[in-house]
């Protein structure tokens, strides 16, 4: 499986930020599925020859929005969204726990959808909007879900809490009064070690947070 190592970096390839951002904007296609699905012909007219260029493994310019602020930074393609947030932007609310897309402590919203930031490359989030737990509210102006976590003592050591808050906010935005199967589907991807589920259940039962800001 060993093969040619690709060494182009962003500058030499002429891989501009603008074309890069377009490349990431798959959302634009989501409405236009009437033609071309599975045919391999879609997008041919829009093909951008630059898009076939390879960037990295050195740092690549990436632009993304985090909690409402636009950030530009150069990251290697191998840097995950989680590590980029924590180490480069000092956004340390999302926690690295399993680092393998299982435990949920790194949950953030990408364009409003909950994802595991440990399992997304930061370069894949270019041009998108990221909301972390810090973006939902602050100690002086908490999001309803955050307030409900405090009121229901839905946290002990607090390390799983940022991910749980974001996942709960996403669940309640989708289902303001979720059924048991909806709770299963909505909070099955987050795990706590101290055992705070009783409080989180109470948060969900309160049905607060029927709106996620920043997403």
């Amino acid at each position: 499986m060993k093969g040619r190592r690709v060494t182009d970096d962003a500058k030499r390839s002429g891989f501009s930020r603008r074309s890069f951002l377009r490349g990431g904007a798959a959302g634009a296609l989501s409405g236009g599925l009437t033609t071309g699905l599975l045919t391999g012909e879609a997008g041919a007219a829009a093909a951008d020859s630059e898009a076939t260029e390879t960037v990295g493994p050195g740092p690549v310019d990436v632009e993304l929005e985090v909690n409402g602020a636009t950030h530009r930074l150069a990251v290697e393609p191998r840097v995950t969204l989680l590590d980029g947030l924590r180490h480069r932007l000092d956004v340390t609310g999302p926690k690295r726990v399993c680092d393998r897309g299982t435990c949920g402590a790194c949950t953030v919203l990408e364009d409003g959808r909950p994802i595991y930031a440990c399992s997304r490359l930061m370069i894949e989030s270019a041009g998108r909007s990221i909301t972390t737990v810090e973006g939902l509210g602050s100690p002086d102006a908490m999001h309803d879900v955050q307030q409900a976590f405090v009121d229901n003592d839905a946290q002990q050591c607090g390390f799983c809490t940022p991910g749980f808050v974001v996942a709960t906010a996403a669940l309640l935005a989708r289902h303001p009064a979720p059924s048991e199967p909806e709770i299963e589907a909505g909070l099955g991807g987050n795990f706590c070690r101290c055992g705070t589920y009783k409080g989180i259940r109470a948060v969900v039962a309160g049905g607060k947070g029927g709106g996620v800001s920043g997403g």
């Binding site: 490349g23 990431g24 041919a44 093909a47 898009a51 076939t52 960037v55 990295g56 191998r78 370069i123």
Partner: peptide, 15 residues
């Protein structure tokens, strides 16, 4: 992760 390159093609043919 080891270092790797990254390409983001727009079409199936490019991919």
């Amino acid at each position: 992760m080891r270092p790797f390159g990254y390409a983001a093609p727009a079409t199936v043919q490019q991919a």
